[in-house]
Design a protein around this nucleic acid. Structure first.
Lengths: 159, 159
DNA sequence: TACCTAATTGAGACTCAGTCTCAACTATTG
DNA sequence: CAATAGTTGAGACTGAGTCTCAATTAGGTA
């Protein structure tokens, strides 16, 4: 079955009223792996310019609340949405030069996270774990030519 | 020696020209552990309202580039700056209810990160690792009363 | 099937955080 | 002390997202 049908069923089960606009937004969103809100706006408006920005943002929020998409901050540019519906948990590795995003799983990190929160008496609800680096290809290009965002080289730089 | 004197020396060593405005911004910034840009703007303007917003943002960027402050996205509200000058590397654990931030060190996570990037042929440059949960106190209050940002319960929720 | 009503929509004003421009000013160099 | 390159203040501007509200519509009900 098409993914968007399943998502629409999920939304309906949550009591969300489906409209033509929402159906279009859902179908366009699940066509992506990662997208920004404004990319989705442009994409949807390409199919039907009469759908309002507000409607697209509202529908995106519904998808978010329903757990269909997750919101990520990859530090470069606006937040990035990922369609995680029926997908296993994973973290991300991003090439800061070409923007490639790799999804990886490392359960041992999760074990250590539990150890950390236990140490402080916390109950863990969620986490953000993102690695930034250079992919094999980009390690061999002249980095001097590239203007990286100024953020990169100072935030949590690995020794 | 006062921290801000050291920071000013560092900036000067980088060829940054020091002005009265910059000195004020630096002194106010290093008085904090964590702060947002707009908090810093209000704080600085409390001492000298004639300092322009633009100047404060520009000086903050200088501090960022010089590695004196790091920029964090804690998902709730605008980015948060942390004065990391002469501080050991650490990650963060945040209580989503009361906002408490704990800095923790877990070198074994870093080891695993190296293993992950090696797996994909990447060269690791930096990372973001933040844990979100409930502190001991907040685990025992009625959570129904609290309106958490809608983001929380869907992003990378731990199973 | 038509009706009812609460939910949703489109349009655009609005907000917030941050950036940019540029003439006026000022710290450093020679 | 003059030259000049860097810095400043003021405010316009931007991007991304939110809000308002009258008009419209989905989906339950008669």
């Amino acid at each position: 079955m098409k993914r968007f049908v399943e998502v629409e069923q999920l939304l309906r089960a949550k009591g969300v009223r489906l409209t033509d606009q929402r159906r279009l937004v859902v179908r366009r969103a699940v066509a992506y792996l990662h997208f920004t809100a404004e990319e989705l706006v442009r994409d949807v408006k390409g199919f039907d310019p009469s759908v309002a920005r507000g409607t697209i943002y509202r529908t995106l929020a519904l998808l978010h609340q329903a757990g269909v998409v997750e919101k990520h901050d990859f530090r470069y540019g606006p937040p990035n949405y990922e369609v995680t519906f029926a997908k296993a948990h994973h973290d991300h590795l991003m090439c800061v030069q070409c923007g490639e995003i790799i999804e990886f799983q490392e359960p041992r990190v999760e074990t250590l996270q539990q150890a950390v929160v236990k140490r402080y008496g916390y109950q863990l609800l969620s986490h953000t774990h993102k690695l930034y680096g250079l992919c094999r290809t980009c390690q061999h290009v002249d980095r001097k030519r590239v203007s990286l965002p100024p953020t990169l080289h100072v935030e949590e730089v690995v020794a």
